[in-house]
Simulated assay, not measured.
Amino acid sequence: MRVMLRAHMDTVATNESIRTGGLPQAIQTLMERVRPEAAYFGLHEGVRSCWIVFDLQDSSLMPSLMEDLFLEFNAEVEVAPVMNAEDLAKGLAAMKSSP
């Protein structure tokens, strides 16, 4: 299932990780694990944030994929199912054909 992970990372924790060189490595490891369709990084509500869209094969993978965000960056993490335009069109077409 296509999902979007949104993480807001604690400033103090990410500052320290930048100083030690850990942030780039942690992001690279996450990208290798999830093989994202898209990934964006920026500020949201005044903190470093990321939005990553990827295919979550099984919900049991969530702890292993996301635990580093909690442990290393005190991140607030949300994961939600999302659709692209093609998925939405397919879903809307299916609604028209149902009674």
Results as ranks from 00 to 15, higher is better:
residue 1 M to K: 05
residue 32 E to D: 14
residue 79 V to A: 05
residue 64 S to I: 07
residue 20 T to L: 08
residue 69 L to M: 06
residue 91 G to L: 10
residue 19 R to P: 04
residue 87 D to C: 13
residue 91 G to Y: 03
residue 51 W to D: 10
residue 52 I to N: 00
residue 45 E to Y: 07
residue 57 Q to G: 03
residue 75 A to P: 02
residue 39 A to I: 00
residue 3 V to E: 03
residue 27 I to D: 00
residue 33 R to P: 01
residue 86 E to S: 13
residue 3 V to M: 04
residue 98 S to P: 07
residue 24 P to Q: 05
residue 16 E to Q: 11
residue 39 A to N: 03
residue 21 G to C: 04
residue 22 G to R: 10
residue 81 P to D: 04
residue 19 R to V: 11
residue 49 S to N: 08
residue 94 A to D: 13
residue 49 S to C: 15
residue 50 C to F: 02
residue 83 M to K: 08
residue 82 V to G: 03
residue 96 K to I: 13
residue 78 E to S: 14
residue 24 P to L: 04
residue 67 E to A: 10
residue 99 P to V: 14
residue 30 L to T: 02
residue 98 S to I: 12
residue 72 E to A: 14
residue 2 R to M: 01
residue 77 V to C: 12
residue 49 S to G: 12
residue 85 A to I: 12
residue 13 A to L: 08
residue 86 E to G: 11
residue 92 L to C: 09
residue 68 D to E: 15
residue 67 E to R: 10
residue 38 A to W: 06
residue 4 M to W: 00
residue 10 D to N: 13
residue 51 W to P: 04
residue 61 L to W: 00
residue 24 P to S: 02
residue 97 S to N: 13
residue 16 E to F: 06
residue 86 E to D: 13
residue 99 P to W: 08
residue 5 L to E: 05
residue 27 I to E: 01
residue 78 E to T: 12
residue 22 G to C: 06
residue 69 L to D: 02
residue 64 S to R: 14
residue 95 M to S: 15
residue 95 M to F: 11
residue 43 L to F: 04
residue 84 N to K: 06
residue 6 R to E: 05
residue 12 V to Q: 12
residue 19 R to K: 15
residue 78 E to H: 09
residue 59 S to W: 07
residue 50 C to H: 00
residue 61 L to Y: 01
residue 98 S to K: 14
residue 54 F to D: 00
residue 47 V to K: 14
residue 97 S to W: 07
residue 86 E to C: 07
residue 59 S to E: 14
residue 52 I to T: 01
residue 82 V to N: 01
residue 63 P to S: 06
residue 66 M to D: 06
